[in-house]
Design a protein around this nucleic acid. Structure first.
Lengths: 217, 217, 217, 217
DNA sequence: GATGAATGAGATTTCATTCAT
DNA sequence: TATGAATGAAATCTCATTCAT
């Protein structure tokens, strides 16, 4: 369709740097990578990394924020629907697991070098990371108000446990401690929702769902 | 009992260095700390750190291994008892939460700079860290064999979810995202056990236990 | 007179770059300014700076040489007149002070980044800068030959002292160490001429001149 | 006297670095020198420069301040004596010229890279530099109060002219524009004092001094 | 045991300049 | 003319580790 170009469009190079950064960060970790590793992987001079991004940090910031914001938006959208809390939490677990399935390198970088790097980037993006926990907690609170979840459980703790369980399973995949295939991805989603919701739901309160689930046991 | 000493015994200095390392690592993170920061905090010359420990890494290794091995032993002991899986998992959750309550700085260092530092110390100690997951998974498998837990759930995934949920709550305390007091520590233990076991147990199979747990609160 | 132009003439751009350079160099110094700072100030792309000038250095060279040559010409012209040495030196002091009054930014750049930057541009333009001292020295020598100035004083030293005194006062204005207003500009001219000539003149030899100067003030 | 040592005392190294810095800064200027140039010249690893001085800047700061403070003290001492203003100014000119005679490299560095580097170190040490001008101005003011110097001349301008004249002559020696030998050093001192004071003194007021000075020629 | 001066590999970042469009 | 993406040499500074005393 479009004419053959002997030279890439400017934005291609920027994106190429981001893509290369994901690969090298995933391979050896953000701190072990030099800017020249990114540039070499992208096939550009390293000065260009500084042309598009102000610093090495800024490259990781960009990778993280672009993806994290998508997740925050997704949670907000899900929460705005009429679905049950269990369905909402399943959607979130699904999104995260599918994100990993779709781009495991990017998710590895985000988890290992940002959300779990509490003394460096985790600190920098703390507010943004907390926002995710808060939105998950909001879903739990909603379910508590509607009588679906037990009121005596701290929504924030439940949200942390839920998110922590998912992230740890991703960590298991990342470091090849857990089997990673389509079947296990799906089972992981169900596991985390069932276990967490199983303990949160009031017996009988969510009959349709719970019974359906139990029937499947 | 002990003779009055005008000069600290050699081992006191070694321990003073370890204690100082916990404080400075907790404060700013392992990577941001220089060897001289440890030495300054301990009130010794930094050459002495190299006398007792071969390297900066070795200091963290020591801190991690000493504590982690205690946990591994504890899990093994717990698993050797006749208690129910739920009780065993509760004991583990208790141990971890109490470890944090007793020495939050040390636990912060272990979690932030080792178990979650997947590209540096997490890598080094991967085998030892996995051993903990494996032992937890063994408890789940035992319960599955005894018919208390659903057989179709992957024990390793369940173990990861369980451990991940606990670690994330500790992270919440560490970074002051969750309220940290005696009451919440206890509720956190119950939350993680109830939610995880709630989804793992076969309906009715553990009722007695669950009630027993509640009575004990 | 001139035709209406919807687009600046080429030379306007070149001049705009020079004018912008004076402003940014005066603000932060030549070395602290990037080529892009000049271009931004001029409202052009920085590639254009390289179109009109071969390098960043060349911009400063141009600024310096254009002005310095005017001064050299002025000294030569003054020396060619029949005026007394005192009058000639007064004319030079006047020219320099008035240059500062007229365009303080340009003079700041010339003094700070060229004549006093002995290890960079001062080195490059040393010959041209010395030429000014030499021409001033020539005036002193002329006065010595005519018996107006003491013969035993080194003309070159006197020229340096004279020029140094003026430049230092300009420096005082540039860095707001001295009051800068019309009255002080005029007093500075007289001060430097009177003090320097006061020590150079043979007692009684220049009385008439001195009185003449005073009458003219 | 002292035993032969195969290893220099710690402070020797620090001083060796300072001495080396003077040599390389004088040779090529502060900005053109890398830290490794200093270290190479001193025969030490460049990490040692950072051991003793926090930064490259700090090396120059140290060189400047140590010498400049000596001069400030000298001016204060001189001003505290009962000497005439002319004698005081002569003492200052003498000190500066002798400083150059004694250690031309150090004076070159101080003048070229600090007092005349208005956009870098001159800025940093502006207050300290001004203090020298102020103290010289104080001498002029004292002479004005005593009726030795004309009251209508701005003392601060006179101080600037005086200092500027000396510094410019040093610059002349530094860049080999003026003959530098014992005879010329002495003549330069007299020239600057005679010319400046010649214009400042009230006719007849200082005849005794002037004659005395002249007798000494 | 204890000290801290000395070492130097290695990382980030800046920015003048080139050149395809 | 005019643009600004692309290049890469070069410089500062950090800090774990060694080792003579």
């Amino acid at each position: 369709m479009s004419a053959v170009r002997t030279r890439s469009a400017p934005q291609d190079r920027r994106q190429a740097i981001l893509d290369a950064a994901v690969r090298v960060f995933a391979r050896r970790g953000f701190h072990a990578c030099r800017v020249s590793d990114i540039a070499d992987e992208a096939g550009v001079a390293y000065g260009l990394v500084y042309h598009y991004f102000g610093s090495k940090d800024s490259v990781l910031d960009t990778l993280f924020l672009e993806r994290w914001n998508v997740m925050l938006d997704m949670i907000a959208e899900v929460d705005a629907t009429e679905a049950s809390a269990r369905e909402k939490l399943y959607a979130i677990a699904s999104f995260i697991v599918d994100s990993y399935r779709h781009d495991p390198d990017l998710m590895k970088v985000i988890i290992v070098d940002v959300t779990r790097a509490a003394n460096s980037f985790g600190q920098t993006h703390l507010a943004r990371i907390r926002e995710a926990y808060r939105r998950i907690a909001a879903i739990v609170e909603g379910a508590q108000r509607q009588g679906a979840f037990k009121a005596e459980i701290d929504a924030e703790f439940a949200a942390m446990a839920f998110y922590g369980a998912i992230e740890q399973m991703l960590t298991g995949w990342i470091f090849e401690m857990l089997p990673a295939d389509e079947e296990h991805y799906e089972r992981a989603k169900r596991l985390v929702v069932e276990t967490i919701c199983g303990g949160l739901e009031i017996s009988g309160a969510s009959h349709g769902r719970r019974d359906a689930d139990r029937d499947g046991d």
